[in-house]
Each structure stands twice: as C-alpha cells, then as structure tokens.
C-alpha cells in the first residue's frame, strides 16, 4: 500500500514528505511509548498519539522515517524542522489510534509481532 493510499484511507494531512507518497508500506507499529519504539529491530511505519519533539528524535534514533500522528494532534514547526533533516514523512489523521490501526490492518498493513 502506498503512503498516498494510506493518507487517503486515514483522511490524513501530509505534514511533510510529499515527495515520498508513492513509496510502499508493508508494516506498522503503534505505540505512545517511545521506550518501546527504541526496542524495535525493524523499521515499520509508526502510528502514535505522542506528538512532541521526542517522537521525532526517537524515530531518528530507531531509524524509522514514516510517522502517522492520530487525533489531529498539532505537529509543531520544530518537529517538522527536525523531521526535514532526516527526510521523514509525517501524516496527521483525525482518527483515534484504535480506528487508524483498524483501518490499516483491514487494508493489509501487517503487524511486526
């Protein structure tokens, strides 16, 4: 599934990463706990309700570069600036974590575990 299709499915706004929307995504991981994200060996798309500068830094350290923020949380300018350095994609969707994950799973996005 492409990021463009994911953005449409989740009714999401593309905060950054417009040029990468034709990339395919296979796996996703959902967590608000950055400590948990830091234990991942793989590099899935992250679905999260935690929307602050540490979300971006954690993804940078864990080599994750696609983030879906749920519940329309405000992605701030400093987050965008940091994400830009690492060529990340950030989508922001209005849905709850539960609904976003349900839609993604139903559309064929696979879990890690």
């Amino acid at each position: 599934m492409t990021l463009r299709e994911i953005a449409k499915l989740l009714n999401a706004t593309v905060c950054i990463g417009e040029s990468r929307l034709d990339e395919e995504v296979e796996h996703a991981f959902a967590s608000d706990l950055m400590s948990d994200v830091l234990t991942l060996k793989d590099t899935p798309m992250l679905v999260t309700g935690l929307c602050n500068i540490q979300t971006i830094r954690t993804c940078d350290m864990a080599s994750l570069d696609i983030i879906v923020v749920v519940r329309n949380k405000k992605v701030t300018d400093d987050m965008i600036e940091l994400a830009e350095d690492d060529d990340m994609v950030i989508l922001s969707c209005p849905y709850s974590m539960f609904k976003a994950c349900g839609l993604l799973y139903d559309a064929g996005i696979k879990p890690l575990y």
């Binding site: 950055m34 400590s35 948990d36 830091l38 234990t39």
Partner: peptide
C-alpha cells in the same frame, strides 16, 4: 509524558 519512564532504558542499553 515524553514517552519514557517505562523502566526499559537500562535493559535496552544492555541489549
């Protein structure tokens, strides 16, 4: 609130 403090830091360093 910043997404940490779950008691996973030191064990994750070790890993």
């Amino acid at each position: 609130d910043m997404g940490f403090g779950a008691g996973m830091g030191l064990p994750n360093m070790q890993k």
